[in-house]
Design a protein around this nucleic acid. Structure first.
Lengths: 206, 206
DNA sequence: GGCATCATTGAAACTTGTTCCAGAATATCG
DNA sequence: CGATATTCTGGAACAAGTTTCAATGATGCC
């Protein structure tokens, strides 16, 4: 009775199982790309990945789990890309802002996929806690990479990074629902990235 | 062919209709309080509010609409309360932080209700755009009230306020899913509220 | 090879959000 | 008041996520 086998990058799966997992994620991604959250229908994912519905549910215990895993998968690719082409701005805050805007534009090109992943991510409840945590950690890592400090960051910096990550998600969702313009996204990302610069300046606690 | 009659504070409804709207919101609130998002089942809301299912859907075209309207309703109460007991800290950023933490603690006492409202809010798509906007505006207003400046805020301040509002939502969700501790919430809220102080200090744009 | 265990399949059933509709109730207008 | 339009009701029907299960297949162990 192992935990469901669909999580992060599989721990101990046979080749066939690993292949199934990949097929499922690929199907999920393709359907999401085509029509967003609503188009990722479990029956269709199963059929398209050529597994039985029950098997799909054994690998990913819910649609949210599946889409959050898909998000993790996509974020890994993004992380790779960013690694190969790191931002070159002199200021850390600027590097973070540029990185996030680059990621943002990448997702802009796949709005349906982005919508599916992010809706699932923010809708997730406790039951998908582990998966959501994994995505959060990866996001944090991406931001910390952009900041560039090599040693372990201080608590205040971590707080700033959390806030930045949350903001990035919110802006993405806001833009996807047509509630925030790209200019506002840009502005807000820059605003929040200033936290990297000013994180040690003042303390609101009295 | 009017728009659905369940939106913000009713425009032109008969007394009976207004009463129905209230009953529905009350039922939604009660069910959410008891068991969160999942416990707000449309059939139960309808029965509990003593209206037919079709009528419920005429007033609120989806579960998300209903819960976002519920959120608006609750936020109005919060706004009132805050108005009666405004924060007295000298620093604007501190006033905002204190206000948000106070609101946070209020919702902590009704975690199920908070979960239901916030899951719906972040899950909402374009179709609930108007409702979501209304909630966003109200949130903005609450924060601006805490800042205290009487005249129209500058764009940069508005950007900071948007970021603060998003952060507040994310922290709430994170805490509700057991992913963020209260200490972290407190810390992150304080972190992001510094944007009110530092919003004009630097600009990351090169 | 044969057996025990676990995974996969296919299909039906169940749950809950959502839609639809025909008829009863209510409101509006002349 | 009567005619007409709108709203409300009760209930069936539909859609998609999720659960369940018996039968079949694969894997590994002796």
């Amino acid at each position: 009775m192992t935990a469901h086998p669909g999580f992060p990058s599989a721990s101990s799966l046979t080749e066939h199982q690993e292949a199934r997992r990949r097929r499922i994620l690929a199907a999920s991604t393709a359907l999401a790309r085509r029509g967003g959250f609503g188009a990722v229908q479990m029956r269709e994912v199963a059929e398209s990945a050529d597994v039985a519905l029950g098997t799909l549910y054994r690998y990913f215990p819910s649609k949210v789990h599946l889409l959050v895993a898909t998000m993790y998968d996509q974020l890994e690719r993004l992380h790779e890309t960013l690694h190969r082409h790191p931002p070159k701005e002199p200021e850390p805050a600027a590097r973070v802002a540029v990185t996030l805007m680059r990621a943002f534009r990448a997702l802009q090109r796949e709005p349906n996929l982005a919508e599916a992943m992010l809706r699932a991510f923010t809708f997730a409840d406790r039951s998908a806690g582990a998966e959501v945590d994994a995505v959060s950690r990866l996001t944090t890592e991406i931001i910390l990479d952009a900041v560039g400090a090599r040693d372990a960051p201080m608590p205040k910096r971590l707080s700033a990074v959390r806030v930045i990550a949350h903001t990035w998600h919110s802006e993405l969702i806001g833009w996807l629902s047509g509630r925030i313009s790209i200019e506002q996204v840009q502005e807000d990302i820059e605003t929040v990235c200033n936290l990297i610069t000013t994180e040690t300046i003042s303390d609101v606690r009295r």
